[in-house]
């Protein structure tokens, strides 16, 4: 567990650096789509909900997982769709 934590922390810190450089390269014109898409991808938290809702037997955990899964699903479908809708609007001069 402890060794595992250190390697997870390593991944976490490196990912912050990746995020830092990638996000600075995002053009300011696309900052609103950036927020919408980060919203959608942070809903990958749905994998936690899947584990909670997964067991066959009924439990509090399963109910909480079900609600979490529904909320995250709204976000995933909604977030990617609205991002797509926005990005389709950005056109060049013709």
């Amino acid at each position: 567990m402890e060794a595992n934590f250190v390697s997870q922390l390593t991944i976490f810190v490196l990912a912050i650096f990746v995020g830092y450089y990638v996000v600075w390269s995002v053009t300011p014109a696309l900052h609103t789509p950036l927020m919408a898409v980060t919203n959608a991808i942070s809903s990958v938290i749905i994998v936690g909900a899947l584990i909670a809702v997964g067991p066959a037997d009924m439990s509090l955990s399963k109910v909480l997982g079900f609600i979490a899964m529904t909320l995250a699903a709204v976000n995933i479908f909604g977030g990617f769709t609205v991002t797509q809708r926005m990005l389709a609007m950005y056109k060049k001069k013709h």
Binding site: Q8, I11, F12, A15, L34, V44
Partner: peptide
């Protein structure tokens, strides 16, 4: 959860915001 994809994504979104 010990889920690397979630850790990475969280870090990306956190630094983006």
């Amino acid at each position: 959860l010990g889920n690397d994809a979630l850790i990475i994504t969280g870090a990306l979104v956190g630094s983006s915001g």
